[in-house]
Structure formats: C-alpha cells, structure tokens
Simulated assay, not measured.
Amino acid sequence: MNERIFVIEDDENIQEIVKLSLESNGYQVTLFDNAIDAIKVIHEDSPDLAIFDVMLPQMDGITAVKKIRESNGHMPILILSAKDSEVDKIRGLDSGSDDYMTKPFGVLELCARVRTLLRRAKPKSKAIQTPTLSIDKSTHIVKKNDIIIDLTHKEYQLLLYLIENKERVVERDELLNNIWGYDFIGESRALDVHIRSLRKKFDDDGEKYIKTIRSVGYRFIEKEDIYD
C-alpha cells in the first residue's frame, strides 16, 4: 500500500505543485486548505505523514502541530513555510514537527525529505530496555525505574537516537541533521537546550546517561542494554 500524505496548505498553486510532485513518486495525497479540518481527519485516520503550512486561516500551522502532538507522537510532520528566520525554524521544530523546509522550495528536495521522514518513522523494534530506562516505540512512553518521564517530541527523538547509536559517539552535526533537519547543520543552541532539558528530567549530571565528548558530540553510556 502506498503511503498516505496529508498536505495542509491554503495556496492553491502550491497545493497543486506539492500534490503532483508527491503523486509522481507514488504517494496518495489528500489536500486541506485549513488545519481544523485536517486535525479532525488525522484524529480519526492518521496518515503516514503530514505537511503543514504555517500561515493558515482559522488556526496556524504551529498551533495545529502542537495539538496533534498531544495525542499523536509518531506521525511524521514536515512544516513548509515562507518564514525563514532562525527563530521561526526553531519555533516550528520545537512545536513537534520533524523537519522544516522554507519556500520557495525544490520539488526534488521536498520528495527527498519526505522519503527520509517516512524511512525514520518505520520502527526497527517495538521496545528498548536498559537497566533503568524503558522506551515503548509504539506509544513513545519513556520510563525511568517504572516511572513515566514526560518528554517533548524532540527530547524523545534525541534520547532514542542516542540510545540506538549507543555503541559510538554521535557527532553534534549528525544529531542536528537527523533530529532537527537539513537547515540546522552547524546550529548548536537548539541541541544544547534539549540536552540540558533531558539531563534535568533524568537527574543526569552528564555521567549517568548522556556523556559529553568534548569537541565531538555525545554518547549514551548506560551499559547492559537489552533490545526487544
């Protein structure tokens, strides 16, 4: 079955360009001109991926993504916006989106990003268990010693990526590229903020779970991991 993609965009010309580009790559595309209608359908029948514009009537795309993330933590979301400042990108990514692409855009790059997001979304395993942590990849529930830890979508992605690459040091640019998207390579403040937040939530002094490797990146260090 071909992956289903919802495109939430009120500009008819951009709607048509995105629809034709995605359909030519074999995807099933459904168009919406406002976020409210899209959210209703997503709650009832979640697609494989959603593409949101930011400037939408009735409800903006950032607010829509936040509302979706309250109940749907796994569906990949790409923001496609004319707002191209660093602040706008950080705001969009921190809302819970998985990638942020600015207009004007190239259709080949758009399709490449869609393929990447869909590939990342396919679970390699259902659960991860370490001596003190458990991660249910189907529900995105993270527990420490059987106590649920409330993580944002980006914090969850960051922790999961570090654990799944625990056998090596993960460089900063790799984390920025894989968690925040192409446009954030080299921009470190978003990563620093989320590392500090994760450490605070896990009572981590930098030696318990996420170890800083100076001038390189980070490594998850808890031993005896068991993958289910």
Rank of each mutant, 00 (worst) to 15 (best):
N25Q: 12
N25R: 15
G26Q: 03
G26E: 05
G26N: 07
Y27S: 12
Y27E: 04
Q28S: 08
T30Y: 03
T30W: 01
T30E: 14
L31I: 08
L31C: 02
L31K: 05
F32V: 05
D33P: 13
N34G: 06
N34E: 03
A35V: 09
A35P: 02
I36S: 13
D37E: 15
A38G: 10
A38R: 01
K40F: 11
I42A: 01
H43I: 06
E44L: 07
E44Y: 13
D45V: 02
S46K: 13
P47T: 02
L49Q: 02
L49R: 08
A50V: 15
A50D: 00
I51P: 04
I51W: 12
F52T: 05
F52A: 00
D53W: 03
D53K: 11
V54M: 00
V54P: 01
V54K: 00
L56I: 06
L56F: 04
P57G: 07
Q58Y: 14
M59F: 14
M59S: 11
D60V: 12
D60I: 10
D60Q: 10
G61F: 08
G61N: 05
G61Y: 09
I62G: 09
I62Q: 09
T63Q: 07
A64M: 01
A64G: 04
V65A: 03
V65Y: 00
K66T: 11
I68R: 00
I68S: 00
I68L: 03
R69C: 08
R69K: 12
S71V: 15
S71T: 15
N72Y: 07
N72W: 07
G73V: 13
G73L: 08
H74F: 11
M75H: 03
M75Y: 00
M75P: 11
M75N: 05
P76N: 02
P76Q: 06
I77N: 06
I77V: 15
L78G: 01
L78Q: 01
L78C: 01
L80K: 04
K83W: 14
K83C: 09
K83H: 11
D84W: 01
S85N: 08
E86T: 04
V87I: 15
V87M: 10
V87W: 13
V87A: 09
K89L: 06
K89E: 01
K89Q: 05
I90S: 05
R91F: 12
L93H: 06
L93F: 10
L93A: 06
L93N: 07
D94W: 04
D94G: 11
D94P: 04
D94E: 14
D94I: 14
D94T: 15
S95T: 13
S95W: 04
S95F: 09
S95G: 03
S95P: 03
S95Q: 02
S95K: 00
G96H: 05
S97M: 02
D98E: 03
D98G: 09
D99N: 14
Y100P: 08
Y100F: 10
M101I: 03
M101L: 13
M101N: 10
T102I: 11
T102M: 07
K103M: 11
K103C: 05
P104A: 01
F105I: 05
G106F: 12
V107F: 13
V107A: 13
V107Q: 10
E109Q: 10
L110H: 10
L110M: 12
C111M: 04
A112Y: 11
A112S: 14
A112H: 14
A112R: 13
R113N: 10
R113A: 00
V114G: 03
V114W: 06
R115L: 02
R115F: 08
